[in-house]
């Protein structure tokens, strides 16, 4: 009986994790932005290994969710894109990690 309750709790925890962050590429982007104050597009591309278009698409989704702020500027005549996590993004990432840790902690070892 208690085992069933526990499995129910695991399922509930899994379904409540933020699916936007759950995608590996976006998790990676969020993790890099979480550990720094801000970074530019090239930095994220070199660190995550994502292609330009792929990274751009994921960032658009994170921006739409209000997790990331994209700031465009010009350095000389070249466009330059800086990104940073919003407070909402930081809280969401922190919350995601806590939930995932709980989910993994409740799983039996073997």
């Amino acid at each position: 009986m208690s085992k069933n309750i526990r499995s129910g709790e695991e399922v509930r925890l899994v379904v409540t994790v933020d699916r936007l962050i759950h995608e590996p590429a976006r998790y990676n982007i969020m993790a890099y932005l979480f550990v720094v104050q801000s970074a530019d597009f090239i930095f994220l591309q070199t660190q995550t290994g994502l292609t330009w278009g792929n990274l751009s698409s994921h960032i658009n989704k994170l921006e739409a969710a209000g997790y990331v702020v994209v700031e465009k500027e010009f350095i000389g005549k070249k466009p330059h894109t800086m990104l940073h996590l919003t407070d909402k993004g930081r809280v969401a990432f922190d919350d995601y990690r806590k939930r995932m840790r709980k989910v993994l902690d409740t799983l039996p070892l073997k």
């Binding site: 720094v36 530019d40 597009f41 090239i42 930095f43």
Partner: peptide, 13 residues
Amino acid sequence: MPRLGQVNFSPGR
């Protein structure tokens, strides 16, 4: 910078 990109580290770092 053009190869690795620009990053501003956290206040802690």
